[in-house]
């Protein structure tokens, strides 16, 4: 028995209250979602007959309805939407990496006294509300927006370009929204890079570009993975940016979930779509965890 006798009855408060809260408002909702996704729409439109019931003969009956999942699987729209969301999320991750990596690298190379200020300047815009920051791009990308005015004034184009509600405006918003999640882990990884390794590489005859590719980049792999995960996962489920900057031509899971519930009033399908989304998200997390486990074992 390891129980320490002086531990307070407060212990049960301290453990019990947050546990109760999360069990009731997070675990239970997930279970209900799971249940709804496997149930059948009844007359009211809401499937609430129990999945598991005791029949009179004393047998346990488990009824799982795969209607919702089947309809999601059969309709191409769902598949295309998932592919589109994942594809745009991957593209966002790639763009953030391409823009963010050199930036984080230069930041890590800058004078140590400058670094906190420069980091602060990265964080500062993100203290204004997310919604406002995304909305602000409308001022620039609108048909009469700043960018079109500039292009007309410079004589590059003769009439305003359609920038809003295109893949371009969507990607601008996505990269803008998620780039700090890429820069910060990359920076904290790169700033720890042991300079002596680069000097050793130089000593062994590596040119600057080779030093970067052969030493810096492989050593920052963990930062790249962490940053990519931090961008990819919320990007898959992003709902606001496609609504404000993407328009209906951009297929998006978030909007599909909204529509299933609020427009089609189909709870089963909304639940099934959400469950599949969770699976999509869990896959890269599982991969990352496995990678980290392997890394830890290798270090041991």
């Amino acid at each position: 028995m390891l129980r320490r006798p002086w531990l307070p009855p407060g212990r049960w408060f301290v453990i019990g209250v947050p546990e109760f809260f999360l069990f009731v408002f997070l675990l239970l909702p997930f279970l209900i979602l799971l249940k709804i996704s496997f149930s059948h729409a009844d007359a009211v439109g809401v499937g609430f007959e129990p999945l598991i019931s005791w029949l009179e003969e004393g047998t346990l009956s488990i009824k799982l309805h795969f209607d919702a999942y089947l309809s999601v699987m059969q309709d191409d729209v769902y598949l295309l939407t998932y592919l589109s969301s994942v594809g745009y999320a991957l593209l966002t991750t790639l763009l953030c990496l391409v823009i963010g990596y050199p930036f984080a690298y230069f930041l890590a190379q800058s004078f140590p006294t400058l670094r906190p200020v420069m980091l602060m300047l990265i964080m500062l815009p993100f203290w204004t509300p997310f919604l406002i920051r995304i909305y602000a791009w409308k001022n620039i990308l609108d048909a009469n927006g700043l960018l079109n005015q500039f292009l007309l004034w410079a004589g590059i184009v003769d009439e305003p370009l359609q920038l809003m509600f295109t893949k371009f405006s969507f990607m601008v918003g996505m990269v803008y929204g998620y780039i700090p999640f890429m820069i910060l882990p990359l920076y904290s990884n790169l700033v720890k890079l042991d300079r002596r390794l680069l000097e050793a590489a130089a000593d062994l005859g590596a040119r600057p570009w080779q030093r970067f590719w052969l030493v810096t980049v492989p050593l920052s792999r963990e930062g790249i993975l962490a940053g990519s995960l931090l961008v990819f996962i919320p990007a898959v489920g992003e709902y606001v940016i496609p609504e404000l900057l993407g328009g209906i031509s951009i297929l998006n899971i978030g909007r599909m979930m909204w529509n299933e519930f609020f427009i089609n009033l189909d709870w089963q399908r909304a639940a099934a779509v959400t469950m599949l989304m969770v699976l999509i998200i869990l896959f890269p997390i599982w991969l990352f965890n496995r990678y980290q486990m392997r890394l830890m074992e290798a270090r041991r």
Partner: peptide, 11 residues
């Protein structure tokens, strides 16, 4: 870890 849409729909 999960995107907020998932959390929102679950709740």
């Amino acid at each position: 870890v999960l995107p907020t849409v998932v959390l929102a729909m679950v709740l």
